[in-house]
């Protein structure tokens, strides 16, 4: 349940961005989360409710964007989205690959007024 610690950081980032904008309310927060980032969407939603419950973020909604894992094969250079936890290249079968996307944990948008 490290989602709570991460969500505290989301609140800190959102409050700072809202203050810089002179906003009075935070209506929604967009989070971009990679499939390999090790967070659970249900736990994130729960943590969001808890952390955003008071102040200018009260009633804010969570907009969660889950981005797929993208690998680049270490053998043939093919880019692919792995179908399971074993990131085998669909072209040459090589297992070793570089992760191009999938570990994201970012605040990517904020709706304020």
């Amino acid at each position: 349940m490290h989602e709570l610690a991460l969500m505290e950081e989301v609140r800190r980032i959102a409050m700072a961005a809202a203050a810089a904008e002179g906003a009075q309310r935070i209506h929604s927060v967009k989070l971009t989360v990679g499939r390999l980032s090790g967070v659970d969407p249900g736990a994130l939603a729960f943590a969001f409710e808890v952390v955003m419950a008071d102040g200018i973020s009260q009633g804010a909604t969570l907009d969660l964007e889950v981005v797929p894992t993208v690998c680049q094969c270490g053998g043939c250079g093919q880019r692919f989205e792995p179908v399971d936890v074993i990131h085998a290249c669909p072209r040459c079968g090589e297992l070793s690959s570089e992760l191009l996307a999938g570990r994201e944990l970012e605040v990517t948008g904020l709706e304020v007024s």
């Binding site: 961005a17 605040v107 948008g109 007024s113």
Partner: peptide, 16 residues
């Protein structure tokens, strides 16, 4: 009237 506006951010949660 409060103006709804959308801010584009790119802030990594693990940055600190």
């Amino acid at each position: 009237t409060p103006q709804h506006r959308t801010l584009q951010l790119r802030h990594n949660l693990l940055a600190s």
